[in-house]
Design a protein around this nucleic acid. Structure first.
Length: 558
RNA sequence: GCGCCCAUAGCUCAGUGGAUAGAGUGCCGGACUACGAAUCCGUAGGUCGCAGGUUCGAAUCCUGCUGGGCGCGCCA
Protein backbone atom coordinates (compact mmCIF):
# COMPACT_ATOMS: atom_id res chain seq x y z
CA UNK A 1 0.00 0.00 0.00
CA UNK A 2 1.17 3.43 -0.85
CA UNK A 3 1.83 5.69 2.09
CA UNK A 4 1.87 9.42 1.52
CA UNK A 5 4.25 10.09 4.36
CA UNK A 6 6.76 7.49 3.24
CA UNK A 7 6.57 8.76 -0.30
CA UNK A 8 7.26 12.29 0.84
CA UNK A 9 10.11 11.08 3.00
CA UNK A 10 11.57 9.41 -0.06
CA UNK A 11 11.35 12.64 -2.05
CA UNK A 12 13.21 14.55 0.64
CA UNK A 13 15.96 11.95 0.98
CA UNK A 14 16.38 11.95 -2.77
CA UNK A 15 16.60 15.74 -2.77
CA UNK A 16 19.31 15.64 -0.09
CA UNK A 17 21.27 13.20 -2.20
CA UNK A 18 20.93 15.37 -5.30
CA UNK A 19 21.99 18.40 -3.28
CA UNK A 20 25.17 16.66 -2.24
CA UNK A 21 25.91 15.42 -5.76
CA UNK A 22 25.51 18.89 -7.15
CA UNK A 23 27.85 20.18 -4.50
CA UNK A 24 25.18 22.43 -3.00
CA UNK A 25 25.21 20.56 0.31
CA UNK A 26 28.22 19.47 2.34
CA UNK A 27 28.87 15.74 2.49
CA UNK A 28 28.16 15.31 6.19
CA UNK A 29 25.87 12.94 8.11
CA UNK A 30 22.21 13.86 7.66
CA UNK A 31 19.79 13.72 10.59
CA UNK A 32 16.70 11.51 10.31
CA UNK A 33 14.00 13.17 8.24
CA UNK A 34 11.09 13.57 10.61
CA UNK A 35 7.72 14.54 9.23
CA UNK A 36 5.00 15.74 11.51
CA UNK A 37 1.45 16.81 10.93
CA UNK A 38 1.30 20.45 12.03
CA UNK A 39 -1.48 21.55 14.31
CA UNK A 40 -2.44 24.41 12.06
CA UNK A 41 -3.74 23.64 8.56
CA UNK A 42 -1.97 26.79 7.39
CA UNK A 43 1.31 25.03 8.10
CA UNK A 44 0.61 22.34 5.56
CA UNK A 45 -0.18 18.66 5.71
CA UNK A 46 3.33 17.72 6.70
CA UNK A 47 6.25 19.73 8.00
CA UNK A 48 9.87 18.86 8.54
CA UNK A 49 12.54 20.41 10.70
CA UNK A 50 15.33 18.73 8.76
CA UNK A 51 16.77 22.00 7.45
CA UNK A 52 17.05 23.35 11.00
CA UNK A 53 18.61 20.15 12.22
CA UNK A 54 21.15 20.24 9.37
CA UNK A 55 22.01 23.92 9.57
CA UNK A 56 24.78 23.43 12.11
CA UNK A 57 26.83 20.92 10.16
CA UNK A 58 26.09 22.63 6.86
CA UNK A 59 27.32 25.89 8.38
CA UNK A 60 24.51 27.77 6.65
CA UNK A 61 21.32 29.43 7.87
CA UNK A 62 18.37 27.00 8.17
CA UNK A 63 16.17 28.83 5.68
CA UNK A 64 18.90 28.72 3.07
CA UNK A 65 19.35 24.98 3.57
CA UNK A 66 15.59 24.59 3.25
CA UNK A 67 15.59 26.41 -0.07
CA UNK A 68 18.41 24.20 -1.37
CA UNK A 69 16.40 21.11 -0.46
CA UNK A 70 13.26 22.42 -2.10
CA UNK A 71 15.15 23.26 -5.31
CA UNK A 72 16.34 19.68 -5.51
CA UNK A 73 12.95 18.04 -5.00
CA UNK A 74 11.88 16.13 -8.06
CA UNK A 75 8.15 15.56 -7.68
CA UNK A 76 7.42 13.66 -10.87
CA UNK A 77 4.20 12.14 -9.53
CA UNK A 78 2.75 15.49 -8.50
CA UNK A 79 2.38 14.45 -4.89
CA UNK A 80 2.79 18.05 -3.80
CA UNK A 81 0.39 20.85 -4.48
CA UNK A 82 2.61 23.46 -2.88
CA UNK A 83 5.60 23.88 -0.58
CA UNK A 84 6.86 26.73 1.56
CA UNK A 85 9.60 27.68 3.96
CA UNK A 86 8.26 29.03 7.19
CA UNK A 87 9.35 30.44 10.50
CA UNK A 88 12.91 29.62 11.54
CA UNK A 89 13.34 27.05 8.77
CA UNK A 90 10.44 24.62 8.68
CA UNK A 91 9.55 23.21 5.30
CA UNK A 92 5.79 22.86 4.92
CA UNK A 93 4.33 20.48 2.38
CA UNK A 94 0.83 20.65 0.95
CA UNK A 95 -0.29 17.35 -0.54
CA UNK A 96 -2.38 17.46 -3.71
CA UNK A 97 -6.06 16.55 -3.42
CA UNK A 98 -5.58 13.73 -5.86
CA UNK A 99 -3.34 11.94 -3.40
CA UNK A 100 -5.76 12.43 -0.53
CA UNK A 101 -8.54 10.99 -2.65
CA UNK A 102 -6.51 7.84 -3.17
CA UNK A 103 -6.72 7.20 0.59
CA UNK A 104 -10.42 6.45 0.18
CA UNK A 105 -9.66 3.73 -2.33
CA UNK A 106 -7.09 2.24 0.03
CA UNK A 107 -9.62 2.14 2.85
CA UNK A 108 -12.22 0.36 0.76
CA UNK A 109 -9.72 -2.07 -0.68
CA UNK A 110 -8.30 -2.92 2.74
CA UNK A 111 -11.67 -2.83 4.50
CA UNK A 112 -11.29 -4.89 7.69
CA UNK A 113 -7.52 -4.77 7.27
CA UNK A 114 -7.36 -0.96 7.16
CA UNK A 115 -5.26 0.02 10.16
CA UNK A 116 -3.64 -3.38 10.43
CA UNK A 117 0.08 -3.67 9.89
CA UNK A 118 2.88 -6.16 10.12
CA UNK A 119 5.24 -4.20 12.36
CA UNK A 120 5.08 -7.05 14.86
CA UNK A 121 5.36 -9.82 12.33
CA UNK A 122 7.18 -12.87 13.64
CA UNK A 123 7.18 -11.61 17.23
CA UNK A 124 5.50 -13.71 19.89
CA UNK A 125 4.19 -11.97 22.97
CA UNK A 126 2.66 -13.44 26.07
CA UNK A 127 0.50 -11.17 28.13
CA UNK A 128 -0.69 -12.01 31.60
CA UNK A 129 -3.40 -9.93 33.21
CA UNK A 130 -6.24 -9.77 35.74
CA UNK A 131 -4.93 -12.83 37.66
CA UNK A 132 -7.16 -11.86 40.59
CA UNK A 133 -7.11 -14.27 43.52
CA UNK A 134 -10.13 -16.58 43.48
CA UNK A 135 -11.09 -15.42 46.96
CA UNK A 136 -13.81 -13.00 45.93
CA UNK A 137 -15.62 -11.50 42.96
CA UNK A 138 -13.89 -9.09 40.59
CA UNK A 139 -14.19 -5.44 41.49
CA UNK A 140 -13.77 -2.24 39.49
CA UNK A 141 -9.99 -2.18 39.80
CA UNK A 142 -9.74 -5.61 38.21
CA UNK A 143 -12.02 -4.34 35.46
CA UNK A 144 -9.54 -1.69 34.44
CA UNK A 145 -6.71 -4.19 34.17
CA UNK A 146 -8.95 -6.61 32.30
CA UNK A 147 -9.95 -4.05 29.69
CA UNK A 148 -6.50 -2.58 29.20
CA UNK A 149 -5.00 -6.05 28.80
CA UNK A 150 -7.72 -7.21 26.46
CA UNK A 151 -7.54 -4.11 24.26
CA UNK A 152 -3.76 -4.17 24.23
CA UNK A 153 -3.88 -7.71 22.99
CA UNK A 154 -6.27 -6.82 20.14
CA UNK A 155 -4.10 -3.85 19.22
CA UNK A 156 -0.93 -5.93 19.16
CA UNK A 157 -2.56 -8.65 17.11
CA UNK A 158 -3.75 -6.04 14.61
CA UNK A 159 -0.13 -5.00 14.20
CA UNK A 160 0.99 -8.48 13.37
CA UNK A 161 2.18 -9.72 16.74
CA UNK A 162 1.31 -13.21 17.79
CA UNK A 163 -0.21 -12.78 21.23
CA UNK A 164 -1.21 -15.24 23.90
CA UNK A 165 -3.36 -14.16 26.85
CA UNK A 166 -3.01 -15.81 30.20
CA UNK A 167 -4.63 -15.64 33.61
CA UNK A 168 -2.53 -16.82 36.55
CA UNK A 169 -4.73 -18.34 39.23
CA UNK A 170 -3.46 -18.01 42.79
CA UNK A 171 -5.20 -21.17 43.91
CA UNK A 172 -2.62 -22.08 46.51
CA UNK A 173 -1.20 -20.66 49.69
CA UNK A 174 -2.50 -18.93 52.72
CA UNK A 175 -5.29 -16.84 51.25
CA UNK A 176 -6.91 -19.99 49.90
CA UNK A 177 -6.69 -21.60 53.32
CA UNK A 178 -8.29 -18.51 54.84
CA UNK A 179 -11.00 -18.70 52.24
CA UNK A 180 -11.67 -22.34 53.15
CA UNK A 181 -11.75 -21.51 56.83
CA UNK A 182 -14.14 -18.61 56.27
CA UNK A 183 -16.54 -20.82 54.35
CA UNK A 184 -16.26 -23.65 56.87
CA UNK A 185 -17.08 -21.31 59.75
CA UNK A 186 -20.15 -20.02 57.92
CA UNK A 187 -21.05 -23.63 57.15
CA UNK A 188 -20.94 -24.49 60.83
CA UNK A 189 -23.03 -21.43 61.54
CA UNK A 190 -25.52 -22.59 58.96
CA UNK A 191 -25.84 -25.81 60.92
CA UNK A 192 -26.63 -23.95 64.10
CA UNK A 193 -23.22 -23.50 65.68
CA UNK A 194 -22.50 -20.19 67.39
CA UNK A 195 -19.34 -18.83 65.78
CA UNK A 196 -17.12 -15.93 66.73
CA UNK A 197 -16.19 -14.98 63.17
CA UNK A 198 -12.55 -13.77 63.05
CA UNK A 199 -11.78 -10.34 61.64
CA UNK A 200 -9.05 -11.67 59.36
CA UNK A 201 -11.46 -13.97 57.57
CA UNK A 202 -13.40 -12.97 54.44
CA UNK A 203 -16.48 -11.08 55.49
CA UNK A 204 -18.51 -10.78 52.29
CA UNK A 205 -22.00 -12.16 51.75
CA UNK A 206 -20.65 -14.40 49.00
CA UNK A 207 -18.94 -16.46 51.73
CA UNK A 208 -22.32 -17.23 53.30
CA UNK A 209 -23.76 -18.09 49.91
CA UNK A 210 -20.88 -20.44 49.22
CA UNK A 211 -21.26 -22.04 52.65
CA UNK A 212 -24.90 -22.61 51.93
CA UNK A 213 -24.04 -24.24 48.62
CA UNK A 214 -21.62 -26.52 50.45
CA UNK A 215 -24.34 -27.40 52.95
CA UNK A 216 -26.79 -28.20 50.18
CA UNK A 217 -24.29 -30.46 48.50
CA UNK A 218 -22.69 -32.12 51.52
CA UNK A 219 -25.34 -31.91 54.24
CA UNK A 220 -23.77 -32.30 57.70
CA UNK A 221 -20.98 -34.47 56.34
CA UNK A 222 -18.21 -31.94 56.92
CA UNK A 223 -19.00 -31.78 60.65
CA UNK A 224 -18.06 -35.43 60.92
CA UNK A 225 -14.59 -35.27 59.40
CA UNK A 226 -11.45 -33.57 60.69
CA UNK A 227 -11.37 -29.78 60.57
CA UNK A 228 -8.32 -29.81 58.29
CA UNK A 229 -10.10 -31.97 55.78
CA UNK A 230 -13.26 -29.90 56.02
CA UNK A 231 -11.41 -26.62 55.51
CA UNK A 232 -9.49 -28.08 52.59
CA UNK A 233 -12.73 -29.23 51.02
CA UNK A 234 -14.33 -25.81 51.50
CA UNK A 235 -11.25 -24.09 50.08
CA UNK A 236 -11.32 -26.14 46.92
CA UNK A 237 -15.05 -25.85 46.54
CA UNK A 238 -15.11 -22.10 47.11
CA UNK A 239 -12.09 -21.32 44.93
CA UNK A 240 -13.53 -23.22 42.02
CA UNK A 241 -16.95 -21.67 42.59
CA UNK A 242 -15.55 -18.15 42.72
CA UNK A 243 -13.28 -18.72 39.74
CA UNK A 244 -16.29 -19.77 37.69
CA UNK A 245 -17.96 -16.53 38.69
CA UNK A 246 -14.87 -14.58 37.65
CA UNK A 247 -14.80 -16.34 34.30
CA UNK A 248 -18.44 -15.50 33.72
CA UNK A 249 -17.91 -11.85 34.67
CA UNK A 250 -15.02 -11.63 32.22
CA UNK A 251 -17.02 -13.24 29.44
CA UNK A 252 -19.83 -10.78 30.03
CA UNK A 253 -17.30 -7.98 29.91
CA UNK A 254 -15.99 -9.33 26.61
CA UNK A 255 -12.64 -10.47 27.99
CA UNK A 256 -11.30 -13.87 27.05
CA UNK A 257 -8.11 -15.80 27.77
CA UNK A 258 -6.14 -18.44 25.91
CA UNK A 259 -4.73 -20.01 29.09
CA UNK A 260 -5.72 -20.36 32.69
CA UNK A 261 -2.54 -21.17 34.58
CA UNK A 262 -2.87 -22.68 38.05
CA UNK A 263 -0.36 -21.82 40.76
CA UNK A 264 -1.11 -25.15 42.43
CA UNK A 265 -0.05 -26.94 39.26
CA UNK A 266 3.46 -25.59 39.77
CA UNK A 267 3.64 -27.57 43.00
CA UNK A 268 1.92 -30.63 41.57
CA UNK A 269 4.35 -30.93 38.67
CA UNK A 270 7.38 -30.20 40.83
CA UNK A 271 8.11 -27.01 38.91
CA UNK A 272 8.66 -25.05 42.13
CA UNK A 273 11.16 -27.57 43.49
CA UNK A 274 12.96 -27.69 40.17
CA UNK A 275 13.19 -23.92 39.94
CA UNK A 276 14.48 -23.60 43.50
CA UNK A 277 17.01 -26.39 42.94
CA UNK A 278 18.26 -24.79 39.77
CA UNK A 279 18.88 -21.49 41.53
CA UNK A 280 20.48 -23.28 44.48
CA UNK A 281 22.91 -24.99 42.11
CA UNK A 282 23.65 -21.65 40.58
CA UNK A 283 24.25 -20.10 44.00
CA UNK A 284 21.50 -17.53 43.61
CA UNK A 285 19.54 -19.15 46.42
CA UNK A 286 21.30 -19.59 49.78
CA UNK A 287 20.43 -20.56 53.34
CA UNK A 288 20.47 -18.15 56.26
CA UNK A 289 18.75 -18.24 59.68
CA UNK A 290 17.01 -21.48 58.76
CA UNK A 291 15.34 -20.01 55.70
CA UNK A 292 16.17 -19.99 51.97
CA UNK A 293 16.88 -16.64 50.37
CA UNK A 294 17.04 -15.42 46.78
CA UNK A 295 20.01 -13.13 46.14
CA UNK A 296 17.93 -10.34 44.54
CA UNK A 297 20.44 -7.72 45.75
CA UNK A 298 22.82 -8.98 43.07
CA UNK A 299 20.39 -7.45 40.58
CA UNK A 300 19.66 -4.17 42.29
CA UNK A 301 16.96 -5.03 44.83
CA UNK A 302 17.35 -3.40 48.26
CA UNK A 303 17.43 -6.67 50.19
CA UNK A 304 17.43 -10.39 49.54
CA UNK A 305 14.05 -12.12 49.63
CA UNK A 306 12.89 -15.27 51.38
CA UNK A 307 11.65 -18.10 49.20
CA UNK A 308 11.30 -20.85 51.82
CA UNK A 309 10.43 -19.88 55.38
CA UNK A 310 11.90 -21.45 58.52
CA UNK A 311 8.72 -23.50 58.83
CA UNK A 312 9.48 -25.08 55.46
CA UNK A 313 6.61 -23.40 53.63
CA UNK A 314 7.39 -21.58 50.40
CA UNK A 315 6.49 -17.92 49.97
CA UNK A 316 4.41 -16.48 47.15
CA UNK A 317 7.68 -15.32 45.59
CA UNK A 318 8.78 -18.95 45.23
CA UNK A 319 5.76 -19.83 43.08
CA UNK A 320 6.27 -16.65 41.14
CA UNK A 321 9.85 -17.56 40.38
CA UNK A 322 8.71 -20.92 39.11
CA UNK A 323 5.88 -19.31 37.14
CA UNK A 324 8.08 -16.76 35.42
CA UNK A 325 10.73 -19.38 34.79
CA UNK A 326 8.05 -21.41 33.06
CA UNK A 327 6.84 -18.46 31.01
CA UNK A 328 10.36 -17.47 30.00
CA UNK A 329 11.08 -20.97 28.78
CA UNK A 330 7.98 -21.02 26.62
CA UNK A 331 9.89 -19.22 23.85
CA UNK A 332 8.18 -15.89 23.68
CA UNK A 333 10.02 -12.89 22.36
CA UNK A 334 8.52 -10.89 25.14
CA UNK A 335 6.37 -11.48 28.18
CA UNK A 336 4.18 -8.79 29.65
CA UNK A 337 2.75 -8.71 33.16
CA UNK A 338 -0.06 -6.31 33.87
CA UNK A 339 -0.24 -5.47 37.57
CA UNK A 340 -2.04 -3.08 39.82
CA UNK A 341 0.22 -0.18 40.76
CA UNK A 342 0.16 -1.24 44.40
CA UNK A 343 2.44 -4.15 43.42
CA UNK A 344 5.20 -1.95 42.03
CA UNK A 345 7.51 -2.77 44.96
CA UNK A 346 7.56 -6.31 43.64
CA UNK A 347 9.20 -5.39 40.33
CA UNK A 348 12.89 -5.51 41.41
CA UNK A 349 12.66 -9.05 42.71
CA UNK A 350 10.82 -10.42 39.71
CA UNK A 351 13.19 -8.78 37.25
CA UNK A 352 16.03 -10.12 39.41
CA UNK A 353 14.62 -13.52 38.67
CA UNK A 354 14.63 -12.79 34.93
CA UNK A 355 18.23 -11.60 35.04
CA UNK A 356 19.32 -14.53 37.18
CA UNK A 357 18.10 -16.77 34.39
CA UNK A 358 20.37 -14.77 32.09
CA UNK A 359 17.61 -13.30 30.02
CA UNK A 360 17.69 -9.65 29.06
CA UNK A 361 15.83 -7.50 31.52
CA UNK A 362 13.70 -6.10 28.68
CA UNK A 363 12.37 -9.55 27.94
CA UNK A 364 9.85 -8.95 30.68
CA UNK A 365 7.78 -5.80 30.58
CA UNK A 366 5.63 -4.93 33.53
CA UNK A 367 2.75 -2.58 32.93
CA UNK A 368 1.46 -0.94 36.08
CA UNK A 369 -2.17 0.09 36.00
CA UNK A 370 -2.81 2.90 38.42
CA UNK A 371 -5.53 2.39 40.95
CA UNK A 372 -9.19 3.08 40.42
CA UNK A 373 -10.60 5.36 43.09
CA UNK A 374 -14.18 4.40 43.48
CA UNK A 375 -16.49 7.26 44.39
CA UNK A 376 -20.16 7.66 44.91
CA UNK A 377 -21.36 11.21 44.47
CA UNK A 378 -17.85 12.51 45.08
CA UNK A 379 -17.32 10.51 48.26
CA UNK A 380 -14.76 7.71 48.40
CA UNK A 381 -16.11 4.18 48.66
CA UNK A 382 -14.01 1.86 50.81
CA UNK A 383 -12.67 -1.10 48.90
CA UNK A 384 -11.49 -4.25 50.63
CA UNK A 385 -12.08 -7.81 49.56
CA UNK A 386 -11.42 -9.11 53.03
CA UNK A 387 -13.84 -6.72 54.70
CA UNK A 388 -16.41 -7.46 52.05
CA UNK A 389 -16.67 -3.79 51.15
CA UNK A 390 -16.50 -3.41 47.44
CA UNK A 391 -18.52 -2.73 44.36
CA UNK A 392 -18.31 -5.68 42.05
CA UNK A 393 -17.37 -5.38 38.42
CA UNK A 394 -20.67 -7.06 37.62
CA UNK A 395 -22.61 -4.32 39.37
CA UNK A 396 -20.75 -1.71 37.35
CA UNK A 397 -21.37 -3.49 34.06
CA UNK A 398 -25.03 -3.84 34.92
CA UNK A 399 -25.28 -0.21 35.95
CA UNK A 400 -23.35 1.63 33.24
CA UNK A 401 -23.21 -0.94 30.47
CA UNK A 402 -20.35 -2.85 28.94
CA UNK A 403 -19.49 -0.48 26.10
CA UNK A 404 -19.58 2.63 28.27
CA UNK A 405 -17.51 1.00 31.01
CA UNK A 406 -14.91 -0.22 28.52
CA UNK A 407 -14.69 3.21 26.99
CA UNK A 408 -14.20 4.90 30.36
CA UNK A 409 -11.36 2.53 31.22
CA UNK A 410 -9.67 2.99 27.85
CA UNK A 411 -10.01 6.75 27.56
CA UNK A 412 -7.30 7.34 30.11
CA UNK A 413 -3.62 6.59 30.15
CA UNK A 414 -3.18 3.59 32.39
CA UNK A 415 -0.39 5.27 34.32
CA UNK A 416 -2.63 7.90 35.79
CA UNK A 417 -5.10 7.19 38.57
CA UNK A 418 -8.74 6.95 37.59
CA UNK A 419 -11.61 8.39 39.55
CA UNK A 420 -14.62 6.24 38.88
CA UNK A 421 -17.71 7.89 40.25
CA UNK A 422 -20.62 5.48 40.17
CA UNK A 423 -23.27 8.14 40.11
CA UNK A 424 -21.43 10.15 37.53
CA UNK A 425 -20.80 7.07 35.40
CA UNK A 426 -24.46 6.21 35.58
CA UNK A 427 -25.60 9.73 34.82
CA UNK A 428 -22.94 10.14 32.14
CA UNK A 429 -23.72 6.85 30.55
CA UNK A 430 -25.95 8.83 28.21
CA UNK A 431 -23.34 11.34 27.16
CA UNK A 432 -20.35 9.06 27.41
CA UNK A 433 -18.08 9.68 24.41
CA UNK A 434 -18.64 6.07 23.42
CA UNK A 435 -22.09 7.02 22.13
CA UNK A 436 -20.62 9.94 20.25
CA UNK A 437 -18.39 7.52 18.35
CA UNK A 438 -20.99 4.79 17.98
CA UNK A 439 -23.43 7.38 16.67
CA UNK A 440 -21.16 7.96 13.69
CA UNK A 441 -21.48 4.31 12.78
CA UNK A 442 -25.23 4.29 13.26
CA UNK A 443 -25.66 7.56 11.38
CA UNK A 444 -23.71 6.41 8.35
CA UNK A 445 -25.54 3.10 8.41
CA UNK A 446 -28.75 5.09 8.39
CA UNK A 447 -27.63 7.15 5.40
CA UNK A 448 -26.81 3.98 3.50
CA UNK A 449 -30.23 2.57 4.38
CA UNK A 450 -31.86 5.73 3.12
CA UNK A 451 -29.83 5.64 -0.08
CA UNK A 452 -30.88 2.06 -0.61
CA UNK A 453 -34.53 2.91 0.00
CA UNK A 454 -34.28 5.74 -2.54
CA UNK A 455 -32.89 3.36 -5.10
CA UNK A 456 -29.38 4.84 -5.02
CA UNK A 457 -26.74 2.21 -5.46
CA UNK A 458 -23.54 2.80 -3.50
CA UNK A 459 -20.51 2.64 -5.80
CA UNK A 460 -19.31 -0.91 -6.17
CA UNK A 461 -15.70 -0.02 -6.79
CA UNK A 462 -13.53 3.02 -6.37
CA UNK A 463 -12.82 3.22 -10.10
CA UNK A 464 -16.42 4.09 -10.87
CA UNK A 465 -16.41 7.07 -8.51
CA UNK A 466 -15.42 10.55 -9.50
CA UNK A 467 -13.49 11.51 -6.38
CA UNK A 468 -12.62 14.94 -7.68
CA UNK A 469 -16.15 15.81 -6.60
CA UNK A 470 -14.87 15.83 -3.04
CA UNK A 471 -13.39 19.29 -2.70
CA UNK A 472 -15.14 20.92 0.25
CA UNK A 473 -12.66 21.83 3.03
CA UNK A 474 -14.65 19.65 5.44
CA UNK A 475 -14.34 16.72 3.08
CA UNK A 476 -10.60 17.06 2.77
CA UNK A 477 -10.30 17.47 6.53
CA UNK A 478 -12.26 14.27 7.00
CA UNK A 479 -10.12 12.35 4.51
CA UNK A 480 -6.90 13.59 6.10
CA UNK A 481 -8.16 12.48 9.47
CA UNK A 482 -8.94 9.05 8.04
CA UNK A 483 -5.46 8.84 6.53
CA UNK A 484 -3.96 9.06 10.03
CA UNK A 485 -5.62 5.96 11.34
CA UNK A 486 -2.98 3.38 10.35
CA UNK A 487 -0.26 5.45 12.00
CA UNK A 488 -2.33 5.81 15.16
CA UNK A 489 -2.98 2.08 15.32
CA UNK A 490 0.69 1.26 14.76
CA UNK A 491 1.83 3.82 17.33
CA UNK A 492 -0.66 2.48 19.84
CA UNK A 493 0.85 -0.99 19.40
CA UNK A 494 4.46 0.14 19.42
CA UNK A 495 4.06 2.19 22.60
CA UNK A 496 1.53 -0.21 24.08
CA UNK A 497 -0.87 2.64 24.72
CA UNK A 498 -4.48 1.64 24.06
CA UNK A 499 -5.86 5.09 24.93
CA UNK A 500 -4.68 6.44 21.59
CA UNK A 501 -7.47 4.55 19.81
CA UNK A 502 -10.48 6.08 21.60
CA UNK A 503 -8.95 9.56 21.42
CA UNK A 504 -8.43 9.18 17.70
CA UNK A 505 -11.95 7.86 17.17
CA UNK A 506 -13.41 10.76 19.10
CA UNK A 507 -11.54 13.16 16.83
CA UNK A 508 -12.68 11.34 13.72
CA UNK A 509 -16.25 11.40 15.04
CA UNK A 510 -16.08 15.15 15.66
CA UNK A 511 -14.77 15.75 12.14
CA UNK A 512 -17.52 13.60 10.68
CA UNK A 513 -20.39 15.08 12.70
CA UNK A 514 -19.23 18.55 11.81
CA UNK A 515 -19.15 17.66 8.12
CA UNK A 516 -22.53 16.00 8.34
CA UNK A 517 -24.15 19.08 9.79
CA UNK A 518 -22.82 21.25 7.01
CA UNK A 519 -23.23 19.12 3.92
CA UNK A 520 -25.72 16.58 2.66
CA UNK A 521 -24.50 13.20 1.54
CA UNK A 522 -27.56 12.41 -0.55
CA UNK A 523 -27.86 15.22 -3.08
CA UNK A 524 -29.58 15.77 -6.42
CA UNK A 525 -26.32 15.30 -8.28
CA UNK A 526 -25.65 11.68 -8.98
CA UNK A 527 -21.85 11.74 -9.20
CA UNK A 528 -21.48 13.92 -6.11
CA UNK A 529 -23.76 11.63 -4.12
CA UNK A 530 -21.80 8.61 -5.24
CA UNK A 531 -18.52 10.17 -4.18
CA UNK A 532 -19.89 11.18 -0.79
CA UNK A 533 -21.39 7.76 -0.17
CA UNK A 534 -18.01 6.30 -0.99
CA UNK A 535 -16.37 8.65 1.50
CA UNK A 536 -18.76 8.12 4.43
CA UNK A 537 -18.62 4.36 3.99
CA UNK A 538 -14.88 4.69 4.42
CA UNK A 539 -15.45 6.55 7.69
CA UNK A 540 -17.71 3.75 8.80
CA UNK A 541 -15.03 1.17 8.06
CA UNK A 542 -12.53 2.96 10.30
CA UNK A 543 -14.98 3.49 13.15
CA UNK A 544 -15.89 -0.18 13.06
CA UNK A 545 -12.26 -1.31 12.95
CA UNK A 546 -11.25 1.03 15.77
CA UNK A 547 -14.12 0.07 18.04
CA UNK A 548 -13.34 -3.54 17.37
CA UNK A 549 -9.85 -3.05 18.82
CA UNK A 550 -11.49 -1.70 21.96
CA UNK A 551 -14.00 -4.51 22.18
CA UNK A 552 -16.84 -2.04 21.79
CA UNK A 553 -19.84 -2.68 19.57
CA UNK A 554 -20.38 -0.75 16.32
CA UNK A 555 -24.19 -0.61 16.08
CA UNK A 556 -26.22 -0.08 12.91
CA UNK A 557 -28.94 1.62 14.92
CA UNK A 558 -29.03 3.05 18.42
C1' G B 1 13.29 7.87 55.89
C1' C B 2 13.81 5.23 50.97
C1' G B 3 11.51 3.85 46.21
C1' C B 4 7.76 4.07 42.06
C1' C B 5 3.78 6.95 39.70
C1' C B 6 1.27 11.56 39.05
C1' A B 7 0.60 17.31 38.78
C1' U B 8 -2.11 20.94 31.95
C1' A B 9 -8.99 25.31 31.71
C1' G B 10 -14.00 25.19 37.42
C1' C B 11 -14.24 19.45 36.77
C1' U B 12 -12.53 14.81 33.82
C1' C B 13 -8.49 14.35 30.65
C1' A B 14 -5.37 14.48 25.62
C1' G B 15 -0.86 16.52 23.84
C1' U B 16 5.24 13.13 18.60
C1' G B 17 11.68 18.46 21.44
C1' G B 18 8.61 22.63 17.28
C1' A B 19 5.09 27.60 15.07
C1' U B 20 -0.81 30.78 18.41
C1' A B 21 -1.12 24.33 24.37
C1' G B 22 -6.27 21.30 22.79
C1' A B 23 -10.93 18.09 23.60
C1' G B 24 -15.05 16.59 26.60
C1' U B 25 -18.00 18.37 30.51
C1' G B 26 -20.16 22.55 33.04
C1' C B 27 -22.00 28.14 32.28
C1' C B 28 -24.15 31.49 28.56
C1' G B 29 -26.20 32.28 23.43
C1' G B 30 -27.72 30.19 18.76
C1' A B 31 -29.16 25.94 14.63
C1' C B 32 -34.19 20.72 12.63
C1' U B 33 -40.32 21.67 7.07
C1' A B 34 -33.93 17.93 4.15
C1' C B 35 -29.82 11.84 4.82
C1' G B 36 -31.00 10.26 12.89
C1' A B 37 -30.60 17.02 17.29
C1' A B 38 -27.22 10.73 21.16
C1' U B 39 -25.63 16.19 16.46
C1' C B 40 -23.68 21.06 15.10
C1' C B 41 -22.07 26.47 15.57
C1' G B 42 -20.45 30.45 18.81
C1' U B 43 -18.77 33.16 23.61
C1' A B 44 -16.06 32.73 28.05
C1' G B 45 -12.36 29.91 30.67
C1' G B 46 -4.46 28.73 31.20
C1' U B 47 1.54 31.15 35.85
C1' C B 48 1.26 23.59 31.62
C1' G B 49 2.70 22.78 40.44
C1' C B 50 7.55 25.95 41.71
C1' A B 51 12.82 27.08 40.64
C1' G B 52 17.01 26.21 37.85
C1' G B 53 19.50 23.70 33.60
C1' U B 54 20.20 21.48 28.42
C1' U B 55 19.10 24.13 22.98
C1' C B 56 17.89 27.67 17.56
C1' G B 57 13.34 25.97 20.22
C1' A B 58 10.75 22.73 26.49
C1' A B 59 4.03 21.13 28.88
C1' U B 60 7.54 17.39 26.74
C1' C B 61 14.49 16.01 28.31
C1' C B 62 17.86 16.70 33.14
C1' U B 63 18.43 18.34 38.47
C1' G B 64 16.33 20.16 42.93
C1' C B 65 11.92 21.40 45.57
C1' U B 66 6.47 21.41 46.78
C1' G B 67 1.89 18.76 46.80
C1' G B 68 -0.93 14.09 46.09
C1' G B 69 -1.36 8.58 45.36
C1' C B 70 0.95 3.88 46.20
C1' G B 71 4.65 0.65 48.17
C1' C B 72 8.67 -0.70 51.54
C1' G B 73 6.76 -8.68 55.67
C1' C B 74 9.94 -15.42 56.74
C1' C B 75 1.70 -11.87 53.75
C1' A B 76 -0.42 -12.67 48.98
Amino acid sequence: MEDIKEKLQGLILQALKIGVEKGELRRVPVPPVELEAPKLPAHGDFATNVAMAMAGLQKRPPREVAQTILNAINDTDHLLARTEIAGPGFINFFISNEYWHRVLRQIHESDYAYGRSDIGKGRKIQIEFVSANPTGPLHVGHGRGAIVGDALCSILRASGYEVEKEYYINDSGRQIHTLGLSVFLRYQEFHGASIDFPADCYQGDYIRETAQAVAEKEGRHLLEISEDEAVAFCAKFAASNILNGIKQDLIDFGVTFDNWFSEQSLFDTGAVDKALQSFKDQGTIYEKDGALWFRTTDFGDEKDRVVVRTNGITTYFASDIAYHRDKLRRKFDRIIDIWGADHHGYIPRISACVEAMEYEKEKLKIILIQLVNLLRGGNPVAMSTRAGEFVTLRAVIDEVGRDAARFIFLTRRYDSPLDFDLELAKRQSNDNPVYYVQYVHARISSILRKAHADGIKPPSSGDSVDLTQLKEPEELALIKCMAHYPAVAAESAKLMEPHRIPFYLTELAATFHSYYNKHRVLTDERTLTAARLYMVSAVRIIVRNGLQLMGVAAPETM
